[in-house]
Nucleic acid binder design. Structure first.
Length: 870
RNA sequence: GGGCGUAUAACUCAGCGGUAGAGUGCUACCUUCACACGGUAGAAGUCCCAGGUUCGAAUCCUGGUACGCCCACCA
């Protein structure tokens, strides 16, 4: 038998076990096992990514659940994978090119794409390696990449089918254009930021010379594209001018005054210039009123040829020039300070330009209705539930989704246009010739799809859909989804919609939204703030198990996690504590002590088994309800307080000099704890399991802890007996002896004689003597008070120390007075309740019983205190 | 303009109708043969404020205050 080190060496454990688990195929799904399937898919990390605290949390929670479910006897499958992350990845490689003094336009599309693939091959391994370091028990034989040919087939399938059904269409629409990235974005990729700006009031003269009207605008540069000025139809101030023509102050073009109810008469002057090509509102109004559209800002964010003398200027430069010109022309009536929300690209940070452009869209109204219903009916359940409100709001007001991106890296849109007759072909494969005119001059659409388009299919594409694979049948729908609420719309909603549309069933039955990991003072971690805690460094410094345990114990649903060195230290210490308890057990085991041996039970064992029974039951419930923090907290105290603090202390005699059967009881308890803790701290527990339990397992038990069963059903837990009140009473007596010593300034090591009036504790005399370092404990009936003794109340009796000459009477009296005050206060509160007839009448019976028992106990205790005070 | 969340010990957070909890920190003591990454004892809280419901509220309701987040086309 290997001797265990004095402290847990997490470095060794972390380095060893993952390979062993993989080798033993512990994490691989067992479709033929006859077990009930339980499945979860990873939120695929971006290949651009490095493991950060968010990943560490999500992966820890995934792993806890997967290991827990496997131990419970499920065929547990956790599917890993990575995401191609369209924009993010392309940006990385473009940055690389820039460093070489090139741009992507120096390469052909094929060359550029090849370059990104090469980058992917080089980097994908990093995030996968980091997953392994976390101990993430994923089934690597089912690893997927969102751009794999198989997943591409799923994407094309959805695209083609949706196109046929009319759910996907192409057309000129107003979209948010990112001039920096040179691509269209979906509404979700737009962030609004408040910016201080101006509101310019401009006079547009009437063409008939009968005066003019004043419009207010925040973007004067777009006025070059004005094709009308609108007022509210009921606005009496302007009824006379509706239908008249205005001379555009700069271009001189004549534009009409129109009436539309979207105009807010209260805002500005009540007149708004209409620029259908450059504003979503105006675009809609333009469509309603059949106004022409004039594009004056291009995709490069510079003024177009139609902007006349401003052509070629950057849009913001043009604004300055136009304002100056307007002032010169004398049409600038007023300039007000005005803060307004500016639309920014979530990706590049650039100010977006609303532009009309030919893009592909997906109509998701029907799917959204299904997703709404799925949550309303409970087919999908959210934890925490409050996210339902946001879900409802978004899906109820959902707009068509712009799915095309002007990027190279991604799923290419399966659409071909005939060069001869312009006929559009949307097909799974490239057509050989035009179906309409027979021309072979076909060009594929250069665009790719929004990354989230493929992510939406992940819960079934990862299982081989559109083929009806055995995996798909067995593991879809997945059991649960764990992810951040920040991608509720991007991902969760879209998966729900896609799953319901293409599989006819929800993709997951439950969704757990994990917390945000913040720094020690609750601040969001960011590189610029410099407060980022790197999980890789944490794993080196405190150990992976400490990191995982810290994350788990702080993962209360709906609240953010404040990660701190103090918390990590506490977890590391916890790991070491368990290690040392195990080490102590192991040191005292002889070869014949095994789990096959029938354990001998005494009072301490019945108590310990009772604690394990109730706590492991609570831990199981907590995990089922995603209360990871609750589960971890209970295990923490079970180990620290119950197992180490109380039980091992009590069992020291059995452990060092007891029978094999007595030692077997201790071994059993350790074994149960290891099995319960394994999902949280897998490296530590596997290491202990090997050191302590190797060769002591029952025949037929798997040698790896990772393969052993969840402890809840263990027969040892079912053993009941003994007096459940005894051990708590022992603890109180012990603690009181120690307190009396401390209060009277007695050296803890000084052996003094002790007395106890609680006969039930006689069997624990030796333990009390040893732990409290007493000369001995005599059990006597009746009053213990005497001038030479320090006395205190324990339960319904008392204990005393023989302290002739050492006693501090003032301290003792003060303590007793304090206790009397406290008891009187508590009793007053209890009596207040019990004397209230309405309480007795309305409160539940068991509640009243509890209060009565408590009052009775406290009364008895108070009597003891009063007696001691004399 | 809507919606959501959070306010509990010095700090970070649990608890969410029936005697105020944890971790860290703090004070004092202890190197007792598993562990100083340890042990023992202890101090520390108008549970944001104001109303209400209830026999009873930190916990439920209403209103307020302070932070934080999300959504929204008001030029």
């Amino acid at each position: 038998m290997r001797e265990m080190d004095k402290a847990f060496d997490f470095r060794t454990a972390q380095a060893r076990w993952y390979a062993v688990w993989e080798e033993a195929k512990v994490f691989e799904a067992k479709p033929d096992s006859g077990k009930q399937p339980w499945s979860i898919v990873i939120p695929p990390p971006n290949i651009t990514g490095n493991l950060h605290m968010g990943h560490a949390l999500v992966n820890t929670l995934h792993d806890i659940l997967t290991r827990f479910k496997r131990a419970q006897g499920f065929d547990a499958l956790w599917v890993p994978g990575t995401d191609h992350a369209g924009i993010a990845t392309q940006m990385m490689v473009e940055r690389q090119l820039k460093a070489e003094g090139k741009t992507r336009h120096d390469l052909t599309r094929a060359e550029f794409e090849a370059r990104i693939w090469a980058w992917k091959e080089q980097n994908q391994g990093a995030i996968e390696h980091q997953l392994k370091r976390m101990g993430a028990g994923v089934d690597w034989s089912r690893n997927r990449f969102t751009l794999d040919p198989a997943l591409n087939r799923a994407v094309r399938h959805v695209f083609v089918e949706a196109y046929k059904q009319g759910r996907i269409y192409r057309g000129p629409r107003m979209i948010q254009w990112d001039p920096a990235l040179q691509t269209a974005l979906s509404d979700l990729e737009v962030k609004h930021e408040e910016r201080r700006g101006k509101l310019w009031h401009l006079r547009y003269p009437l063409a008939d010379g009968s005066g003019g009207i004043v419009v207010a605008t925040t973007r004067p540069e777009t006025m070059l594209g004005d094709t009308a000025v609108a007022v509210h139809p009921d606005d009496a101030r302007y009824t006379a001018v509706v239908g008249k023509l205005l001379d555009h102050p700069i271009t001189g073009r004549q534009i009409p005054v129109v009436a539309d109810s979207f105009v807010d008469p209260e805002f500005g002057t009540g007149c708004v210039k209409l620029t259908p090509a450059h504003d979503p509102n105006d675009f809609a109004a333009g469509q309603r009123l059949k106004l022409p559209s004039l594009t004056v800002i291009g995709f490069d964010a510079k003024m177009t040829a139609d902007a006349g003398k401003y052509a070629g200027l950057d849009r913001f430069e043009a604004r300055k020039r136009i304002v100056a010109d307007l002032e010169e022309l004398g049409v600038l009536v007023k300039v007000e300070d005005h803060t307004s929300k500016v639309a920014l690209s979530d990706r590049s940070g650039a100010v977006l330009e609303p532009l009309v452009s030919d893009q592909w869209f997906m109509d998701v109204k029907e799917a959204a209705a299904k997703a709404l219903e799925a949550v309303r009916s409970g087919a999908i359940q959210f934890t925490p539930e409050h996210h339902v409100a946001v879900w409802e709001h978004w899906l109820t007001n959902i707009q068509d989704w712009c799915i095309s991106r002007q990027l190279v890296w991604g799923h290419r849109i399966p659409a071909w246009t005939c060069g001869a007759c312009s006929h559009l072909h949307v097909e799974m494969e490239a057509p050989a010739a035009c179906a309409k005119c027979g021309s072979t001059e076909l060009t594929q659409d250069p665009d790719t799809l929004d990354t989230w388009f493929s992510s939406a299919l992940w819960p079934f594409s990862a299982f081989g859909w559109p083929d009806a694979t055995p995996d798909l049948k067995r593991y879809y729908p997945t059991s649960v989804l764990i992810t951040g609420y920040d991608i509720l719309f991007f991902w969760v909603a879209r998966m729900a919609m896609a799953g319901l549309t293409w599989m006819g069933e929800v993709p997951f039955r439950k969704v757990y939204f994990n917390s945000l990991v913040r720094d020690a003072s609750g601040q969001k971690m960011s590189k610029t703030k410099g407060n980022v805690i790197d999980p890789l460094e944490v794993m080196d410094e405190y150990g992976t198990d400490a990191l995982r345990f810290s994350l788990a114990i702080m993962a209360a649903p709906g609240t953010d996690i404040a990660m701190s060195p103090a918390r990590l230290e506490a977890s590391r210490n916890f790991c070491n504590k368990l290690w040392n308890a195990a080490r102590f057990v192991q040191m005292n085991l002889t070869d014949e002590v095994t789990l096959a041996l029938e354990p001998a039970f005494g009072e301490a064992e019945f108590w310990m088994a009772g604690r394990l029974r109730s706590e492991l039951g609570a831990v199981t419930e907590a995990l089922e309800a995603f209360r990871f923090h609750d589960a971890a907290d209970r295990l923490y105290h079970l180990v620290y307080d119950d197992f180490c603090g109380t039980y091992i202390e009590l069992a020291k005699v059995q452990l060092t000099s007891g029978t094999a059967a007595q030692k077997a009881a201790i071994l059993h308890f350790l074994d149960l704890l290891l099995r319960a803790l394994h999902p949280f701290v897998p490296f530590l527990t596997e290491e202990i399991h090997e050191a302590v339990l190797a060769g002591r397992l029952k025949a037929g038990e798997p040698a790896l802890l990772a393969e052993r069963a969840w402890p809840l059903g263990d027969p040892v837990l079912a053993r009941e007996g003994g007096d459940p009140a005894l051990i708590p009473q022992f603890q109180e007596a012990l603690s009181t002896f120690l307190r009396l010593k401390a209060e009277n300034g007695v050296d803890p090591a000084k052996r003094v004689a002790a007395l106890c009036s609680l006969r039930a504790l006689e069997p624990f005399a030796e333990a009390l003597k040893a732990i409290a370092r007493l000369e001995g404990v005599s059990f006597v009936d009746g009053d213990l008070s005497a001038p030479s003794r320090a006395v205190a109340v324990v339960g319904r009796g008392a204990v005393a120390l023989e302290l002739a000459g050492l006693k501090d009477p003032a301290a003792e009296k003060a303590k007793l007075e304090k206790e009397r005050e406290k008891l009187e206060k508590e009793l007053a509160a209890l009596r207040g309740r019990l004397d209230n007839p309405r309480y007795l009448e309305k409160a539940p019976a068991d509640e009243v019983e509890k209060a009565k028992a408590l009052a009775e106990e406290k009364t008895a205790r108070l009597a003891q205190v009063v007696a001691l005070l004399g």
